[in-house]
């Protein structure tokens, strides 16, 4: 028996796409909105704390908020809770900066048995690397464009 005689590739792919179990889109969106929103609200509270209790300036507030959220993201990844949250929250826990911390810690943790240089040290940047490459490159290009417009 030759499967290719009874099954057409294109039709099969179409059939699979149409009939595969789908995720609950609206529920996923609601969870992402809720969790993402809550993490940002926590960020806002940190801003207030930095401004009114620590009396930091604008740059200080930003750094304080980022550092605390990154710490929380890293810590909850370490104790094995962040991935459980991500299972339900989807982008709600990927997109905030806590998710960035999770993407740094999780490969580093995973590869600690491969040593501290090529394991932890190198894998720390598995996902953070591309983020920095594209983010920094884009900012340099934006800066150059801004400079040129300023000169003109």
């Amino acid at each position: 028996m030759d499967i290719n005689r009874v099954l057409d590739k294109k039709n099969y792919q179409k059939y699979v796409k149409k009939n595969m179990p789908k995720s609950k889109f609206l529920k996923e969106c609601a969870m992402a909105f809720l969790v993402g929103g809550l993490i940002c609200t926590l960020g806002e509270a940190l801003d207030d704390f930095a401004e009114y209790t620590l009396f930091l300036d604008e740059a200080g507030i930003g750094t304080f908020r980022s550092a605390v959220l990154i710490f929380l993201g890293a810590f909850f990844t370490g104790i094995g809770i962040y991935d459980v949250l991500g299972r339900y929250a989807g982008a709600g826990s990927i997109v905030p900066i806590t998710g960035f911390a999770n993407s740094i810690v999780s490969p580093a943790l995973e590869y600690k048995w491969e040593g501290y240089i090529l394991g932890v040290g190198a894998k720390l940047f598995t996902i953070a690397g591309p983020v920095l490459v594209y983010g920094i490159s884009a900012s340099v290009i934006a800066g150059i464009v801004y400079y040129i417009i300023g000169v003109l």
Binding site: G86, R87, N102, L109
Partner: peptide, 12 residues
């Protein structure tokens, strides 16, 4: 993915 990466599984 790494075990601790917070990413949802797809239904399939």
């Amino acid at each position: 993915n790494p075990l601790e990466l917070g990413t949802p599984k797809t239904p399939t």
